[in-house]
């Protein structure tokens, strides 16, 4: 907003995207994408969305599809809320956010059922549970309601990517150590099993997802010291 009163020339905008006269991938905008990958990761730093991180990380494939679905939902709902941010009545804003997220999730679910039936069966109720993923509502409330469309879109994609990255890392180790496979293909050769190696069945159960996330946080904080809380 301009402080001075007077005539300000009308700016041309493309779909409301570049009206903050900033390059599309300025340093600030790139940070919206990269921050959630490490410094501000929704799972390991903000500790949001843990429930689904435990539930669908037994195998890589559903973890990837879940990440992409969350990305689609977050990108789309952040854009919609940001477009409507000056129209949404303040008193029902949480309801509006919920409706938008729920609608997006149902759309994703319907599309998966039509075009990726096996995956939709595998994810079953977890697709519906994207609605309750704290990251989605959290970003709408904290970012999209107060920022422009393009920034909100980047923020949605960035946070979903940060979420998905952790999901994929955890799923990689759980599938590898739990069932000796990756993407459903056996990667640990038979002769290792013949030598007495056994898959760790505990890796397939939810507690080990939590422990894997914990180990990730440990490694992350030992590399990135500014994340360590000071008492």
């Amino acid at each position: 907003m301009s402080e001075k009163k007077g005539f300000t020339p009308e700016k041309t905008t493309l779909l409301f995207i570049n009206n903050d006269s900033e390059p599309l991938f300025s340093k600030k905008n790139r940070a919206l994408l990269t921050d959630p990958m490490d410094d501000n990761n929704p799972i390991t730093v903000q500790v949001l969305g843990i429930c689904s991180a435990l539930a669908i990380t037994v195998q890589l494939k559903p973890a990837i599809v879940m990440s992409l679905s969350v990305m689609a939902v977050m990108g789309a709902s952040n854009v919609i809320i940001s477009l409507l941010r000056n129209l949404i009545p303040n008193r029902i804003r949480i309801i509006v956010q919920l409706v938008v997220v729920a609608a997006m999730v149902i759309l994703v679910d319907q599309i998966l059922r039509a075009y990726a039936y096996d995956v939709s069966k595998e994810l079953s109720i977890f697709i519906g549970l994207i609605i309750t993923n704290c990251i989605v509502m959290g970003r709408l409330e904290a970012f999209a309601l107060g920022n422009g469309v393009w920034k909100s879109f980047l923020d949605g994609i960035g946070n979903a990517a940060g979420y998905g990255f952790i999901l994929i890392v955890v799923a990689f180790f759980r599938e590898l150590l739990g069932s000796g496979k990756l993407f459903g293909f056996q990667v640990i050769p038979d002769f290792i099993y013949d030598m007495g190696y056994v898959n760790n069945g505990l890796m397939l159960l939810s507690p080990m997802a939590l422990i894997t996330v914990g180990i990730y946080i440990w490694i992350q904080r030992s590399r990135n010291r500014k994340l360590i809380e000071k008492n």
Binding site: L87, I88, P89, I92, I95, V96, V99, V100, A103, I106, L107, Q110, I111, R113, A114, Y115, Y117
Partner: peptide, 25 residues
């Protein structure tokens, strides 16, 4: 007014998607 319009738009979008993907599903 906002709530009414929102419900109408969302409901018709979802109804349209569901009925157009029904055969494939």
């Amino acid at each position: 007014l906002f709530a009414t319009i929102m419900v109408l738009v969302v409901a018709s979008t979802l109804a349209f998607t569901a009925s157009s993907l029904k055969d494939l599903q």
